[in-house]
Nucleic acid binder design. Structure first.
Lengths: 329, 329
DNA sequence: AACATTGAGGTAAACGATTACGTTACTTCA
DNA sequence: TGAAGTAACGTAATCGTTTACCTCAATGTT
């Protein structure tokens, strides 16, 4: 493999000059530049990123730390991030934490040691304490969601409360008065969707019925169980807002198995707009969780920090949600 | 940040000794070992992977080069790979090629320059010529699918021909005699599924009707178009084998919109078992394309090469498919 | 003519771990 | 008792770039 030394020899200049024509960090006479470029081509030289990373203590790599790439939400996020970074040729490191705190912490420390140039973190349980090393190493971080607040951490998030509000309001606008909820009612990452649901009902002058608000575990099976339970009630709701599409699809399947028509007998709205949402019948009304857009935005924020074109105060960008009416409501 | 020099000073030994207790590559007296370990803890030392990579010309990182992480098949693959590599603490680099040849080539060269320890490649269009640099650099490669044959490249694949055969045979066993195909009938990555289809029909003494074999473009819309076309035929098939689930779901949706019952009026079988397959109604009969298993296997093969516990001849492992009967057939 | 300035590019010290060679102090045994 | 062997560890070159300092010649200034 040709190194910068070989190139320098071949072009009759010093290694410094080669390095400078590559980086453009100082003026090099046009003819000299050409000689160097020719030498590079002739030898098929490729800079050794390791050596360069070692010197600069940065690797032109971004770590994407997420719970699980297998969750249909994250591939989109990953793609958005990559597309944003592509132009500047950053690579991306993929880290699955399974939403476990020790793994989240471990990965952060790991990628700090690996001298990544930036980190995109989807933290489910980590606290500021867990990312101390990254902060100390001055590595730019962007978090998704609002769990981690810090003056030097940019965050991109969605206004899930508003999204859930719009979804619920659409049910109300369709004439429903008995509206249930399947999802997480406890403080946590998905709580805003419950809050938006409650707000929409309250604003419409409707009361929230606790027995219609079921905690499911965000899987299709969870949705099935929750729906089965709701249908045992003397007066089940006529419409249900589910905190994600998996729950909604599970609920819908159970409803139809019991002979109920969707949306005539029971209307169902989901959240996220996963692939399957458009494929089921009836197609699921839902709220698009703009994963791609969030990934891209995170990448853009990160880029400005990594390239030092911005180093001001914390930024928070909120990517708009989008209501997607289909057939299930 | 503490370096190995600090640790050495703190423990009163040389850097060599520190390095050796870390790697275990030569005997160090137990008490000395303990002193070093204590120093490491006291200083919070973490080896600089860049420095080590530079010296060893390997980075303990594996590149996963795939067309598109957004395609629901690949996240599973990625996870399988990661899980296999986790124990040995290899990282994974994610590279999307969009199945474009120049990108495939570019990424291979890129990760070679980045001195990855291994490559998992899902090549759609690349030829041996495109991965020349990786071969020259002696970097272990595992390819998925049988496109790239080379004495030093292990490959893991599935027997799609057999899988398609089983799926088609199940249709025949159910009494169908008029069986159609939606997918790719041309030489290419998914051709084996067509071949398996043809073989199954032939073995059962049935003839393949060209007008029932439609080329779709592997999306749901493609499936819809193909099915719409089939239904214009004077005698449409009573069963259809689709080369992937997206096609099958599209086909199924169109059939039901036209008032046909699935599977009574037309039976449908897909391939891959994507998430949505279990969620649609009726749930789709399909063949599991064992992405996770393939990723894990690829990881295992790679590990043996990277750790030099194997350096023999080319290995090819075929991960078994699995027929998943559900409601659509 | 003496000095300052500018343009172009060279020198060599980092960066932090690995490892091929040594070295030193004990044992062992003829 | 001295040569050979061994246990335990140290020295310093090396990997390939980057970049803080220099250097040198040519030009400009008074």
């Amino acid at each position: 493999m040709a190194t910068i030394v070989h190139v320098a020899k071949h072009a009759g200049v010093s290694t410094a000059t080669v390095s400078y024509v590559l980086s453009g960090k100082r003026y090099v006479a046009p003819e000299t530049q050409q000689r160097v470029l020719d030498a590079i081509n002739a030898l098929g030289f490729r800079p050794n990123t390791l050596a360069s990373g070692m010197r600069k203590q940065r690797t032109h790599t971004v770590a994407l730390i997420i719970p699980d790439i297998t969750n249909p939400y994250y591939p989109m996020l990953a793609r958005g991030l990559q597309d944003a970074l592509l132009a500047e040729k950053y690579h991306v490191f993929l880290c699955n934490t399974d939403a476990q705190r020790d793994l989240e912490r471990e990965w952060v420390n790991d990628v700090v040691a690996a001298k990544v140039s930036g980190i995109v973190l989807v933290a489910f349980v980590a606290t500021l304490d867990d990312i101390q090393e990254a902060l100390a190493a001055q590595i730019p971080i962007v978090t998704l969601g609002e769990r981690l607040m810090h003056p030097e951490i940019d965050t991109v998030s969605t206004d899930d409360t508003a999204g859930a509000g719009v979804a619920t309001a659409s049910l109300i606008a369709n004439g429903h008065r008995h509206i249930g909820f399947i999802g997480d009612t406890q403080p946590g990452a998905l709580e805003p969707r419950f809050i938006g649901f409650v707000q929409a009902l309250t604003e419409a002058g409707l009361t929230v019925m606790p027995e219609w608000c079921i905690t499911g575990d965000f899987t299709r099976a969870g949705g099935e169980r929750a729906m089965a339970h709701l249908l045992t009630l003397p007066t089940p709701p006529t419409a249900i807002f589910c905190a994600n599409d998996l729950l909604a699809i599970g609920a819908m399947n159970v409803a139809r198995q019991r002979g109920l028509r969707v949306p005539e007998d029971v209307a169902i709205v989901g959240y996220d707009d996963i692939d399957a949402a458009a494929m089921v019948m009836p197609a699921l009304t839902t709220v698009l969780n703009p994963a791609y857009e969030m990934g891209r935005t995170a990448g853009e924020l990160l880029l400005t920090r990594m390239q030092q074109t911005y180093d001001g105060a914390r930024r928070e960008v909120i990517v708009p949600h989008q209501f997607i009416p289909r057939e299930s409501s």
